[in-house]
């Protein structure tokens, strides 16, 4: 077992892990941060996306020891301390960008990474950016819409509610 220390959502976190312990396992099992999900075993679904040192990564495809010393951000740290949703979270609720909620943490974290690099993405930008995030419920329509709305763009002309 190796001790790892990292900052998770601004707080110091540490624990003992095996070499094979994945970052997602450390978050879910050691830190009880179960908002980050595992939806596949081939690094494709994106339910596990978190930020490590400000970059979106798949926490199921990174060892916990590789995150030693890193700044990690997860879905649990996205809302304000008083519980107020951040702009992206609020846009997901406003535009019905989630149904079962399982892919949602990864979607929100990917969206945050996208908007950091590309503050006014086009529809095509958003769709391509989500290549590594699979949703089975929404058909993506309202996710794309929510992300564009979160970027401050007018989505009123996009079809339907």
């Amino acid at each position: 077992m190796t001790e790892v220390k990292m900052t998770v959502n601004g707080k110091a976190a540490s624990g003992n892990v095996e070499g094979r312990t994945l970052l997602v396992q450390f978050l879910r099992e050691n830190l009880n941060l179960t908002g980050t999900h595992v939806g596949c075993d081939t690094s494709q679904c994106g339910a596990c996306v978190v930020h490590v040192n400000g970059e979106a990564v798949k926490s199921c495809t990174m060892l916990a020891v590789e995150a030693n010393g890193a700044e990690v951000a997860t879905i649990e740290g996205q809302a304000a301390p008083d519980g107020t949703l951040n702009t992206i979270q609020q846009a997901f609720q406003d535009h019905h960008g989630l149904q079962c909620g399982f892919c949602t943490p990864g979607m929100v974290m990917s969206a945050a990474a996208l908007l950091k690099d590309n503050p006014k993405p086009t529809e095509a930008d958003v769709r391509h950016y989500l290549d590594g995030n699979i949703c089975r419920c929404t058909g993506y329509h309202n996710i794309v819409k929510a992300i564009m709305a979160a970027s401050g763009q007018d989505v009123g002309t996009i079809a339907a509610e």
């Binding site: 990564v57 990474a113 989500l130 290549d131 590594g132």
Partner: peptide, 9 residues
């Protein structure tokens, strides 16, 4: 290649 999260690693 892959997707953004994969490209970051």
């Amino acid at each position: 290649i892959g997707d953004p999260a994969v490209r970051n690693r």
